[in-house]
Amino acid sequence: MFKLVKIVVEFKEYITLSMLIIICFALMSMGNAAELRGFRTIVVGGIGVAQRLFAWVPNPVALKSENKALRELNFYLSTEFAKSRKALVENEKLRTALEFKESLDFPVLSAELVGRTTAGMRNYVTLNVGRNDKVQEGMAVMTERGLVGSIIAASDNYSLVQLVINIHTRIAVKVEETRVNGILLWEGSEELLLTKVAKSLDVEAGDRVLTSGYSTKYPAGIVVGQITQVRDDPSSLFRTITVRPLVNFETLEQVFVRLELPDAERLALRKQLEEKLRTKE
């Protein structure tokens, strides 16, 4: 106690100064401190320094709430990221589709797939456009990547498309580079088969296959696929050619329906020929 009194007496000036400073700050705080902008800056700065000094002390309650807030933020950001990513992909898709639509010299109608039907080796898809949208049986369906199929039935608001990968599909095609003609069909594998190509004809892997002008069902010049393999079977006069379709039928979402029917006169002529051949038989 005596020591304490001794210290107080020895440092009375400093103690008085400290007390008076505290009193001054207290008086300033009680007064109109808003006028003391510098004082306010000092106080805020001082608090900031003190907080930074003690920031390392963990606060379980604050950590818990911060954790919760971060989790919520993480969820929100993940959702936003997924949304923007989806929008980006969709934007890219639509941009490509738009460019494709503008590049065509015949009218097309954009449509979305609303259903898929698989019966054995017969693959069909349902579109959200029908007769009300001027869609009719026999119209070709395609995407910017290539041929999809043709409309085989249409109701007022929906239509059914027989895909290229259907056991009943037969497409008259032409090899883009060498102009060799053939018939494209599907036998259930992942790839299409290009038939009726003689061994003497020049066909190579990598060549693109397009619909030919001989087709009465599809407009000429639409890409169907790319030749992946050319084999010569000794027991056959024709080559065995496999074609990979360029359209991915698994991820198909948006298509274009060609709003033009094949040439009616040509179809009628072909029917007449078929009937004549039948009567001769």
Binding site: E13, T16, L17, L20, I21, I23, C24, F25, A26, L27, M28, M30, G31, N32, A33, E35, L36, F39
Partner: peptide
């Protein structure tokens, strides 16, 4: 110190300044 504190305080009061500024 005491004189300075009192003088500053008196001046703060009569000059309508924020009490404690001149004193400090």
């Amino acid at each position: 110190l005491v004189a300075a504190f009192c003088a500053g305080l008196i001046y703060d009061v009569i000059s309508n300044d924020v009490i404690g500024t001149n004193a400090l």
